[in-house]
């Protein structure tokens, strides 16, 4: 009986707890302000929402000055990625993943580069010409440039 109880605890209660934690985590961080950022040399201060979507869906390949666009994102399950997709692009993270997979696995495009922390995001954006990504407002410093998004 103890065996069964332990099994139930491991099999049901722990995943349930984890799920609740995941939900509360999302709920807590959804109030966080996220900003689109670029390499300072990109010289882009404003982008339309549609253009931003073309960039993050990996369809637009170069900036107006001809410099290749380098897109950086956090992993699919990162809370900030979720907030960014919904607030800045008006799409759900699973839609971005499907669009990237269609490009990569049919050979018709490339995937964005994945970074694993906001610190890494800031460093990459600050040092990669043509780069674009996103950060929570509090993590932004002078090494990157904020881009304002028009509706």
């Amino acid at each position: 009986m103890t065996g069964i109880f332990t099994y139930c605890l491991r099999g049901i209660l722990l995943p349930a707890l984890l799920i609740i934690l995941l939900f509360t985590d999302n709920a807590l961080s959804s109030g966080e302000a996220v900003e689109v950022i670029t390499h300072p040399g990109t010289n882009v201060n404003y982008l339309s929402k549609n253009l931003l979507r073309s960039v993050f869906s990996m369809r637009l390949r170069t900036w107006q000055n001809g410099v290749p666009i380098r897109v950086f994102v956090l992993p699919d399950d990162a809370p900030l990625h979720n907030i960014f997709a919904k607030k800045k692009l008006n799409v759900f993270p699973y839609q971005l993943r499907s669009a990237w997979d269609r490009l990569v696995y049919s050979g018709t495009g490339q995937a964005p580069l994945v970074v694993h922390s906001e610190e890494e995001m800031r460093t990459k954006i600050a040092t990669t010409p043509g780069s674009i990504g996103y950060l929570s407002e509090i993590k932004i410093d002078g090494s990157v440039q904020i881009v304002h998004i028009n509706e």
Binding site: R61, G66, V104, Y105, T108, Q110
Partner: peptide
Amino acid sequence: IGLTASLRPLPGLQLSGQ
């Protein structure tokens, strides 16, 4: 099992294979 590679030597040029 699949292995996919793509190379973009220029923004307008891409070579892809799987």
